Amino acid sequence: MPSQADEEAHQLSYLQKHLANILYLLSEHVEGESEESLVLTMEGFEHLGFLIQFGDKGSGGVPLSQAAPFFANSDPDMSAAPVPVSQVHDWLLQTIASSLESITEKVSAKENGSPSGSDQDIAMADASPSSAKASPSARSPCFVEGVSKSSYVKQASDLKSSSVKVINCHDSTIYILAPLRYAIIYGCSDATIVLGAVGKAVRVEHCERVHVIIAAKRVCIANCRECVFFLGVNQRPLFVGDNHKLQVAPYNTYYSQLEEHLTEVGIVSTINRWDEALSISVIDPHDSLSHPAGVSDTQSESATCLDPDQLTNFLIPNWFENESTGSTKDNPFPLPDAYMTSQQRNVNALSLNEDDKL
C-alpha cells in the first residue's frame, strides 16, 4: 500500500499536470486593448481551496487568497483586482515543484534512517503546497482495509484517531459512526459505507458501485463509477477526474448520537448543498489511474440527482442499545419537498396495503 508521502506526491503531480485546464475553467475573459486575456478573481481563486491547502496539516490552515502574494494584502472591504491567469499558473507551478522536492527529501531522509515525526491526520486537499510539520500529538489515521462480504462497525469509543481510511473493501456494509476530521474511501466496490460526522472533508476515489452515506463539511469525489452518494454537506460537492454514472441524493439516515457528533465537528444540518455539485472533469488519457486501460475515451459525466421515488430511508441497526446515550430520533437534514412528498406517498401506499390484508 502506498505511503502518505507517495499519495501526496501523486496528488501534487496530478494537480501539476492538469493545473492549466483547471485555471481555465475558473477564469474570466477580459477584453484588452488589442487582444482577449484571461484573469482570475479572488473569488475564483478561492475555489481552488477544494484542491489546495496551505498551512500545517492538522491545523485549520490559512485562506488560500492570503497565502498568495497577489491577493494577500487585499483590503477585505474592497473587491480585489483580478490577476492574470498566467501569473497564478506560474506561481502555483513553482509552489507545487517546491513541495514535491520537499516530499522527495523527506522520503530520502526516512530511507536513510533519519528520525522523523509521527504521521499526521490526512490533508484532504489534492495538494498541500506548504510542507507539513510533524506534530508529536498528531495520530495516524485509523485504517479499515480489505473487508469482504461482511459487516463492519466502528463507534467513537473504538477510534483513537480523528481520521479514517476505508480502503479496498468489497461486498460489505461498513459503519463508521463517530465524529471525525477527515475520511478517505478508496478502491471499494459493491459496498455500502456510512460515515458519521466529518468536520473537515471526505474524499472518495476509484470506487465502483458503492452507496456512500456522508454527513460532512465538504466532499470530493474522484474517478468513480456507478455510485450513489447520499449527502448532508455544508459546501458544494466537488467532482474531479473521470467519473461516470454517478448519482447524488439527500442524506437518508441517522443514529442516536448523530446530532451530538454534528455539533461537535461544526456541521450545520439546516444547510445541505447536496445538489449543487461543482464538476472539474479533466481527463488525461495517458493517466493510468484516472483513465485505466480498456476504458473508452468518453467525456467524464456530471452526477445526476436520484429520482425522488427511489429514495428510501437507510436504517442503521442499534447494536449497542444499552450503551446509546444520544437523542437523535430522526434524520436531522430536512428532505427537499419532492423527496418528502414521495416518501409520504410511499408510506400512505404501504398503509393501504396493510389495511387490505386485514
Rank of each mutant, 00 (worst) to 15 (best):
S114P: 00
W274A: 09
P63Q: 08
G199Q: 11
A191W: 01
Y182K: 09
F143Q: 09
I96Y: 03
T304Y: 00
A303D: 03
A201N: 10
C188D: 01
N272F: 05
S300W: 02
K17E: 07
L311N: 08
E43F: 00
E208T: 11
R236V: 10
D297M: 10
D75Q: 07
Q120Y: 07
V228Q: 13
N234R: 06
N252W: 04
G61T: 15
S290W: 02
T328G: 10
P237D: 04
Q87S: 02
M78A: 14
Y186S: 09
Y186N: 05
R236H: 11
S151D: 11
D287C: 10
A293T: 03
Y251Q: 12
S27Q: 02
L311Q: 12
I185M: 08
S59I: 14
K357L: 13
V83N: 02
W274V: 11
P141H: 06
A68Q: 01
V30L: 08
T298S: 08
A125Y: 09
E276A: 12
L159Y: 07
T41K: 08
M340W: 04
S3A: 14
V233G: 08
H10R: 14
E301N: 02
N252Y: 06
S342E: 08
T325V: 14
Q53R: 12
E208W: 04
S279E: 07
H29G: 01
V228S: 15
L48V: 05
R345P: 00
L231R: 06
N168A: 06
A156M: 11
S137H: 08
I122T: 11
Q87M: 02
D56C: 11
N348H: 12
K329L: 14
I283M: 01
M78G: 03
P63D: 05
V210A: 14
T312S: 15
A9Y: 08
V265H: 11
C227Y: 04
G199C: 14
H170I: 09
M1F: 05
A20R: 08
G187I: 01
G326W: 03
L350V: 12
A97F: 01
T173N: 05
S157Q: 15
S302K: 12
K245D: 06
V248R: 04
Q310H: 09
E8G: 00
F333P: 01
K57N: 12
V233P: 01
C169V: 00
H10G: 10
S157L: 15
A222M: 06
S288P: 02
S102R: 10
K154V: 15
G58H: 09
V265Q: 14
Q310I: 03
F143I: 02
C224A: 04
P250L: 13
